[in-house]
Amino acid sequence: MGELLRLLKKGNKSALLAGIVNAIIAIIKGATFILTGNVAMFAETMHSLGDAANQFFVFIGSALSKKTPTARFPNGFGRLVNLVLLGAVLIVGIMSFETIREGFRHILHPTESSGFILNVSVLGIAVMLEATVLYKAMKEIVYDEDIEVKGINILFQSFKRLRNAKPATKLVFMEDLVATGGGILAIIAVIISNFTSYHQAEGIASILIGLMMFFVVGKVFLDNAAGAIGEADEKMEDKIGSLVMRDPDVKDIQGINVIKEGEDFHVEIEIEIEPTLTVAVADDIKDRLEKKILTEKGITDVLIEFDEDDGLLNWKK
């Protein structure tokens, strides 16, 4: 129990915050839907429920992935977060299907909902809360890239660097981006339905929100399927390669692999050195390089192999 609590403290904070916020929002939206019968509100309730469940799964998965390697699992549990996310997207997929189905049902059999002020107020508060969580995820993406930006520039930089974000942070970002956009879309549909006779607007909004959720499902599934298999990170390979080549005793790099497992990186590198160096000197070089590489954020282990310098330069990056 003590180890579990220790691991949970290391879980992704953005996912935990997003899960709590979306759970509260889902309860409020659900109660509003029961009172008003608004289909757009039903879509948003399903959306928030799916997001909350997803993000709690992500928080737990990101925490358990920090578990120390064991004799049975010597490579650690980094890919566990990817496996959890693959399971979590199934929940959002089911919610998406129900949302789209309810939207089609309302278009075919439109009904007038009540509680205009209540619907708009709840959706407006939900949009503000979800936008706050989205902004926090944006800041985390930028922070992980070790760059300092302020104001509106955080928005642009977070989109630009989303590909390199941690799996859990990326999921929170995408889900709350869709949640914020879906909330605005639902508000527009409620306004149209209230001030015109076009009550099908709520059904159309429900379908569009469901399709947006399906987009998140597809994107998250593809990203985490690659992570679960073990995806090479070319950007980190270039960074580590440049760092190693700056060492005066390194003549060349024959090969380098940086495998991303969850939020962790595993580095395997083969370098060329002078054949006249002693084993003791080579061991000092190995220790020095390992220490430098392990200072890079996210790298958990390094495997260095040596070969004699063949006089040809292979590393040209």
Rank of each mutant, 00 (worst) to 15 (best):
E231G: 03
Y143P: 04
K317Q: 13
S121R: 08
L123R: 00
L49H: 09
L7N: 04
K139V: 08
D233V: 06
L303A: 14
N257R: 15
M1P: 10
F173E: 01
G210V: 04
V267R: 10
T180D: 11
V133F: 05
E237P: 11
A71S: 08
N257P: 03
S14W: 07
G124N: 04
T180Q: 13
M41I: 14
T70V: 13
L108F: 15
A168V: 04
I259M: 07
E148Y: 12
M128D: 01
F57A: 05
N257E: 15
D238G: 08
K136W: 12
A31F: 09
M41E: 11
L303S: 11
V244I: 14
I209K: 00
K29M: 03
D301V: 14
V127M: 00
F57Y: 08
K136I: 13
L86K: 05
S62R: 00
E272D: 11
L177H: 02
Q254P: 01
E274S: 14
A18K: 01
M236P: 06
V250Y: 04
D301L: 15
N82F: 09
I256K: 02
A137P: 02
S197R: 11
K13S: 14
V92E: 12
K136P: 01
I207C: 03
W315H: 07
E270G: 07
A205E: 03
E98M: 11
E145W: 13
A53L: 12
D301T: 15
S113R: 05
G87I: 05
L185A: 10
F116T: 11
G19Y: 01
K10H: 06
L134M: 10
G61H: 02
L289I: 15
F77H: 15
L7S: 01
N22L: 03
K136V: 10
K316D: 07
E272P: 07
L312Y: 09
G241V: 03
L134G: 08
L8N: 13
R72V: 14
V244W: 12
I27W: 13
I147R: 01
V122R: 05
A88K: 10
V220R: 05
I269E: 07
I154H: 03
L16H: 08
L90R: 03
E3Q: 11
G227W: 02
E263F: 06
V172P: 06
A165G: 05
I293S: 02
D176H: 08
E305G: 10
K260I: 12
L185P: 09
L177I: 02
R105H: 12
D252G: 04
G61R: 00
A165T: 00
R79Q: 12
D287A: 13
R105E: 13
L118A: 06
N153L: 14
V58K: 02
H266Q: 13
A31L: 15
M212C: 12
M174I: 12
I259A: 04
K136C: 08
V89G: 04
